[in-house]
């Protein structure tokens, strides 16, 4: 029985490679759990700011599931809107209510407008002309989901491919014996790591330019900010993916094991990167975003591309991404000690 011999051999190989076994069984459960949390989450409750509005309006909005905050001064209300404490600001100008949306997330916009419309029905029997005037701080009613997701997907795909390619090529350096050969030369460990950063860095500059140009100019994804800042952010994100990929490759013995890290390291970052509304996720899961490079990259890109913000808004993201890269480089140099102590 040649077939059963093959079957037995494969089962034996699996038994030896416990990691592949665990990945085949546990990773799908892990990813499905995440998706369940994301898609089965509670309905999004918009937070609405009210500027000198009657209390009857706020109570009817609350009965539609919205959270309301009352403001006395217009400047405070506007500040809350731009730092996203509130999703929309409602003012009453004479008889006509005005709704100003923050606007950068189409899903949130829909939730706000739905709550406002339903609340308006409470008043429609009193006055037929209760029709809110709607304006946007960022974006517009024409903004589609791809405009919102554009910056996130740009960040994600750059991160994903650089991670995998850099990781696999550093891994191959080990499996083909060239790393051992390099370590038999007077080359210092940090020179090897920085060499990789330099070589791939040049490649990622080209990649960052190409992808940013393609998405904004060819695909026409919404872009109201500075192109230079977009390049800077994509580049830093590539760098963190590159250094993380080479670091992780030290813990993989072959290409297959490298790919096994994708659902563990890349997929969770995608789920927490803002592609899905974060407000519906449990708190413990949301907190993980602070240790994920993709979070900072996509937040920075969204700020520049959708909200048109400048350096001050993304400075923290830039510093954190640079810090991640520096940390990964350092860990990489330490990890190489496994192959040569000096």
């Amino acid at each position: 029985m040649k077939i059963s011999a093959i079957v037995i051999r494969i089962l034996r190989q699996f038994r030896r490679d416990k990691r592949t076994l665990a990945l085949m069984l546990i990773a799908p459960l892990f990813v499905l759990t995440l998706m369940n949390l994301v898609f089965n989450g509670k309905e999004y409750k918009p937070t609405l700011g009210l500027l000198s509005a009657p209390s009857v309006l706020s109570s009817s909005l609350q009965s539609e599931g919205a959270v309301t905050i009352n403001y006395e001064r217009e400047d405070l209300a506007e500040a809350a809107l731009s730092d996203r404490t509130i999703d929309a600001l409602i003012t009453i100008d004479g008889q006509v209510p005005k709704v100003k949306l923050e606007g950068s997330e189409p899903a949130v916009n829909r939730a706000v407008l739905q709550a406002v419309q339903k609340a308006a029905e409470h008043f429609s029997h009193q006055s037929a002309s209760f029709k809110p005037v709607i304006t946007y701080l960022h974006g517009s009613e024409n903004m589609t989901s791809i405009d919102q997701f554009g910056p996130i997907l740009i960040g994600f795909f750059i991160f994903f491919f650089v991670f995998l390619i850099a990781g696999v090529s550093f891994l191959r350096e080990r499996t083909t014996g060239t790393l051992e050969r390099l370590l038999a030369t007077p080359l210092k460990r940090y020179e090897i790591v920085l060499g990789y950063v330099g070589g791939f860095g040049i490649f990622t500059i080209i990649q960052a330019l190409l992808i940013s140009w393609f998405c904004t100019k060819v695909l026409g994804i919404m872009m109201v900010g500075s192109f230079g800042l977009v390049i800077l952010l994509t580049l830093l994100m590539s760098l963190s993916a590159l250094t993380l990929g080479t670091l992780i490759s030290a813990y993989a013995n072959n290409e297959l094991q490298m790919i096994q890290f994708v659902p563990l390291i890349i997929v969770p970052q995608l789920f927490l990167s803002g592609l899905f509304p974060m407000d519906t996720l449990p708190d413990w899961l949301r907190k993980l975003e602070v240790i994920m490079p993709l979070t900072y990259g996509t937040k920075g890109l969204s700020d520049v591309m959708i909200r048109g913000l400048g350096w001050n808004a993304i400075a923290l993201d830039v510093y954190v991404l640079t810090g991640f890269s520096a940390l990964f480089i350092l860990l990489n140099i330490i990890a190489l000690r496994k192959y040569r102590k000096i």
């Binding site: 014996g177 060239t178 050969r181 007077p186 040569r340």
Partner: peptide, 21 residues
């Protein structure tokens, strides 16, 4: 040994052909 500076004095040919194919 091990001493990094001494590696300049040694020419090493590994058992596996450590070449970039």
């Amino acid at each position: 040994m091990p001493k990094l500076s001494m590696l300049n004095q040694i020419g090493y040919m590994a058992q596996s052909d450590a070449l970039y194919t």
